[in-house]
Design a binder for these strands. Structure first.
Ligand SMILES: [Zn+2]
Ligand SMILES: [Zn+2]
Ligand SMILES: [Zn+2]
Ligand SMILES: [Zn+2]
Lengths: 390, 390
DNA sequence: AAAGGTCAGACTGACCCTG
DNA sequence: CAGGGTCAGTCTGACCTTT
């Protein structure tokens, strides 16, 4: 099949194509004859169309059909229009008017013509017009860049939305589940995951408005002081509703047994308790995101430089406003909610300190090597006097 | 729906989501339980997921589900109690609540003659009532008791005034200034002072309304977990406006020289920085008092007992209201002020952990004996897993 | 309220019928 | 052979039942 690389069953509509693409184009023609097609590409109009993925994007599939030359005019043996053979639909009859389509359009809410490729061509004007309409669809521009104007006051809702967008994503650990659950295997997967997540954390910090305005020294200092807290907040949030289970990644969850094998019992106690608290509070993603940002800018107080501190305080101020925007406008007892969320941070701080000490012991015992970035950050946080330096 | 922007039908798998995304994630879970899913993105793992496009890319839809925090609450049939089912609420909801609710509540044989307050309108009334319930338990109150009548709602300002009254006083160290500044002399005076202050802390805790209602076990646990933080908050407050100087007592101030002699350099760095922050914020005594109470009730989360936790949450609630009363009604940016104060607590927690570790090392090195009460509390805080137990 | 189950409706494509 | 219909299989999500 020239469209999907599947085995072709013949020369359909002018193209060597498979049964599936043939039927798909057939249905598209029928749909087009009775109104515009509402296929919408979920991405940027250049989806890969192969046997496995051809179902995913109708817009790109039809587009490729047309690009490869499919059209009704190419039919070698065209049959007369059988008058829109009515399906077993209950309501209206065939004829000309398509109320069904209209109803559907209305129900869809009919948003602004974002990326919808709608062929308004008449029924007779088949492929060529459709091709023009489909191909003309512009890419949907998935991610608008953040309000990058550094001096301009950004509306809070934009700031919150931006922070939501740049928050470190949930990563998979790619843990080999065929390996036995030994201390080495589990700890190695945790280290690998942490190393991976640390890159996300660094990228995230860079994308926080105002962070880049700080001096390099302070930026590094804050990151070194907060990274474990940021990771732990994510862990706690992912572990919500998982009783006695730490969801390090969707494919790496630690139950009591694994915690014992990985020798995480001493630090898991406070973390599991914190996780229960997260669960009870139903911390939302918005709130989690803001807690992470607060953990970053509050990870340490640099008292030396007045100007620098002023910048940091500006950052704090905007985070405070973000909290106000997000939490305070709740219905029931918003202030108590805010205080409950903020009260989590001392516990997070403690959990981070314990975790850093645990890793530090592993590092100095040479039981297992640390990944590069993880190792670097460990040295940084030691320097930041987060751990005792014996 | 946080995933597709459609109308949400509830809080499913940890995310506010629509029926479609809920069912999709459910099917994905079922599929995942029997082998890895084979969703493949037709584009670049970056598809837009909205109401009309969510069907297009299963891979990106599932990924977004995970990113937004969806996960199975527990492997199988999970019965989850929100815990806040019914309490001794006194809020009334005459107008908004439909009568069927009332009927149901009465049929349940709820001893309380009123229905649960689910109305969003009666927030203020409920809050005041909750406060009344908390303070209803009359504390021993060696001085003027805040409320004699047990059912009478006590205004918050009375609570704040009472907390001001029972706050641990500033103690003198009775340090012998004729002695030379050696490590032994200075450390011994610090230990003696801490021991003395600890008695005040215990008395103070007993006088906090609602604290005595907690179980003995929890009372001890909270005290063991928070005492160092309470001492440090007092120290920080006393050290305001004293540059590079720790005012352990009016007659025992540590400048840089004494800090070096007493080998407190490693822990004094964060504490001195915190002290500068206190100075910049101009923390009032009222605020310091409330921070101490918050440090006490937030020193640990006991997750075992539902009823016990409810009492602790009531206590938290009244402290939150005290904060609101004290801080929020300021003139300029009260909320930012509140967040700044709360942001101190993680640093206090860290300073407390470092201090405990320092004392723990002295104790195990037998360089100097600890006073009785101090020794006891050290063991308690070690038990409370505040320090590493090597 | 939030799990899990249900099933009509929509889409797909292997297969069949017809010219 | 290719256009076009058929319909079982699959996915979806509004609705229902259970806890
Ligand atoms: Zn094909
Ligand atoms: Zn596409
Ligand atoms: Zn959705
Ligand atoms: Zn995709």
């Amino acid at each position: 099949c020239q469209i999907c690389d599947d085995a072709a069953s013949g020369f359909h509509y002018g193209v060597w194509s498979c049964e599936g693409c043939k039927a798909f184009f057939k249905r598209s023609l029928q749909a087009m004859s009775s109104g515009p097609v509402d296929y919408v590409c979920p991405a940027t109009q250049n989806c890969t169309i192969d046997r496995q993925r051809r179902k995913s994007c109708q817009a790109c599939r039809l587009n490729k059909c047309i690009q490869m030359g499919m059209s009704r005019g190419n039919c070698r043996r065209e049959r007369e229009r059988p008058g829109k053979a009515n399906r077993k639909k209950k309501g209206d009859d065939a004829q000309t008017s398509p109320p069904k389509v209209r109803i559907k359009e209305e129900k869809d809410g009919n948003r602004s013509p974002v990326a919808g490729s709608s062929s308004t061509a008449a029924a007779a004007a088949a492929a060529a017009a459709a091709a023009a309409a489909v191909v003309a669809t512009p890419p949907p521009a998935p991610q608008a860049p953040p309000a990058a104007a550094s001096n301009e006051p950004v509306p809070i809702h934009t700031l919150v939305a931006h922070l939501m967008r740049v928050d470190p994503p949930v990563r998979h650990a790619n843990h080999d589940h065929s390996l036995p659950d030994t201390w080495e295997n589990l700890t190695a997967s945790l280290f690998k995951l942490a190393d991976f997540e640390l890159m996300d954390v660094i990228t995230w910090a860079k994308n926080i408005p105002g962070y880049s305005a700080l001096s390099l020294k302070l930026r590094i200092h804050l990151l070194e002081a907060c990274w474990m807290e940021v990771l732990i907040i994510g862990l706690l949030w992912r572990s919500q509703n998982h009783k006695d289970c730490l969801m390090f990644a969707p494919d790496l969850e630690f139950d009591r047994t694994r915690i014992r094998i990985a020798e995480l019992e001493s630090i898991s106690t406070p973390i599991l308790r914190l996780s229960q608290l997260f669960t009870r509070l139903h911390v939302t993603r918005e709130e989690m995101v803001l807690l992470r940002v607060l953990a970053l800018i509050n990870s340490d107080i640099c008292g030396d430089n007045d100007e620098e501190r002023s910048l940091q305080e500006d950052l704090q101020q905007s985070v405070h406003e973000a909290f106000e925007y997000t939490v305070i406008r709740r219905q029931r007892q918003p202030l108590s909610r805010l205080l409950n969320l903020l009260s989590l941070l001392p516990h997070v701080r403690m959990a981070a300190m314990l975790s850093l000490q645990q890793i530090s012991e592993i590092k100095s015992s040479l039981r297992l090597p640390l990944e590069d970035l993880l190792n670097e950050m460990m040295e940084g946080s030691t320097k930041a006097s987060r751990t005792m330096t014996p």
